[in-house]
Amino acid sequence: MIISRISRFISNFDNLLALFAGACAVLAVLFVLFLPLPYSEDQLYPKEIDESSPLYPYERGGTPFERADIHVQYPENSPFAGYVTAYLTPFSLALSRLTPHAGTTIVAHPGGILDEILYNTRGLDTVVETTILFIAFAIGSYLFRKGS
């Protein structure tokens, strides 16, 4: 019987991943066939590239301790959004005056648009994300201690 054969295949959990991968592959192929998708021009947090800026590729559009103009989803929920974006620590200010090639180092230093999104406007994402890391670490360390 075909049904009993299918049910036997599904009930073996070694086949489960193959089944899921097959479903994903079929969906991805269908996705490509139906592809041309519109790209909405009205994006949140749009990126502006200004190659002459010493902060390139993360030009901030504001001076420290003033509000930079950023496009957030709910401005009324984050009344102070824009201050973190414009902030430069003294170290990164000195770095930006010294050389125009340290933009990536400066953006990882405190302040900037990525910190604004990760800590302020979408802070809950980061909370969940670090919780996932914490849970995975708990599983790993429990099994490690049990095994040793």
């Binding site: 979408r122 809950l124 994402d125 969940v128 994300e129 919780t131 996932i132 849970i135 995975a136």
Partner: peptide, 17 residues
């Protein structure tokens, strides 16, 4: 949660738990 990406993160947290 009222955000699609946040929902995706919470869902993967459920999965790993």
């Amino acid at each position: 949660t009222g955000d699609i990406f946040d929902f995706a993160l919470f869902t993967s947290l459920v999965g790993i738990c």
